[in-house]
């Protein structure tokens, strides 16, 4: 201690330097940890957001079952809130039907384009096509809806002779154009990430390009392609405004494709602004939103389960 004080008095300047560097070191240390906690906090914030969304929506939505029985909500097709009829089967079936038809159209086309870009197209064209697809993802959904209602619906009216033209067909075509870039890009990435050796081995066994693609590439890229399809599906499931503009918004089944009908999203957005917050009608709409939320979350968990262990 004595020596220390001696040193202090003798070499004050030096010890000050030492102290200063020490405080500086402490400061960097604190900064380092602060930054880490900031990052952890923002990650936590995301989790909290998801939880509060689930809780808010479900808390409001589940109130509907005070007045409406479970079986009525899920299986009755009578949606007439003014007279106390809250059967959401039409919308649930509509959403499933619309998503299925959209996928049935979009998947083969997207796979075709992905195979073309990844395997067939000349190199100069590849990158142009990829960046074009990236640009398409950014185009607002409302623009697709506008295109649907100004170009597609008159066309459908002319071709099929339907009086209105709105319906599942128009909605699924609009959605197809919307989710096409999503599925194509992910499938393309999945196909491109397959090692070259697999291709060469297949060629060495004498297969043609097409045999190589169907027998080797597609099975190997299966999980990537499925991820793309599911992501496209969640997008189609939750798309609202583009669908609202072309589906007709009538609470009836539209299985023949050109009858005006309604799906979960379109029904919510058309009615939510006109109802009281504390009414069964409103609770029913929140319950529909909760259903949508659950559907998309189940799909995401499916994707996570599908992924091989160790890959993030």
């Amino acid at each position: 201690m004595e020596r220390l004080s001696n040193n202090l008095s003798k070499n004050t300047a030096q010890s000050f330097n030492l102290m200063r560097s020490q405080t500086k070191w402490t400061k960097t240390y604190v900064h380092n940890h602060l930054f880490r906690y900031l990052c952890v906090f923002s990650a936590l914030f995301l989790g909290i957001t998801l939880f509060s969304i689930v809780i808010f929506i479900s808390k409001t939505g589940l109130l509907v079952f005070k007045d409406v029985s479970l079986s009525e909500f899920f299986f009755s097709t009578k949606w007439d809130p003014e007279n106390g009829k809250y059967g959401a089967a039409v919308f649930i079936m509509g959403t499933i039907y619309l998503t299925a038809i959209t996928l049935a159209i979009a998947t083969p086309i997207s796979l075709c384009i992905a195979i073309y870009i990844a395997e067939i197209a000349p190199n100069s064209l590849k990158n142009t096509m990829r960046s074009l697809l990236d640009l398409l993802v950014g185009i607002p959904s409302i623009v697709y809806g506008y295109l649907g209602s100004t170009i597609l619906i008159p066309l459908i009216r002319k071709v099929t002779g339907a009086t209105v033209g709105d319906g599942i067909l128009a909605a699924s075509l609009v959605l197809t154009i919307m989710i096409l870039p999503t599925i194509t890009r992910i499938a393309d990435d999945a196909i491109c990430s397959i090692p070259k050796e697999l291709r060469e081995a297949s060629y060495a066994l004498g297969s043609t390009k097409f045999q190589m693609i169907t027998k080797v590439l597609l099975p190997a890229a299966k999980s990537g392609i499925l991820t793309g399809i599911i992501l496209g599906m969640t997008r189609a499931l939750g798309e609202t405004m583009a669908v609202v503009m072309v589906i007709g918004n009538v609470a009836q089944f539209g299985f023949n494709l050109i009858t005006p009908t309604s799906v979960l999203t379109s029904n919510i957005v058309m009615q939510i602004l006109n109802v009281d917050f504390d009414s069964t009608w409103n609770y029913a709409l929140y319950m529909m939103a909760f259903l949508l939320l659950m559907m998309s979350m189940i799909f995401i968990i499916l994707i996570r389960k599908m992924r091989p262990k160790g890959v993030k």
Partner: peptide, 10 residues
């Protein structure tokens, strides 16, 4: 993957 309409309702 949460549908935008659900964010809207939230």
């Amino acid at each position: 993957s949460v549908p935008s309409i659900v964010f809207g309702l939230f």
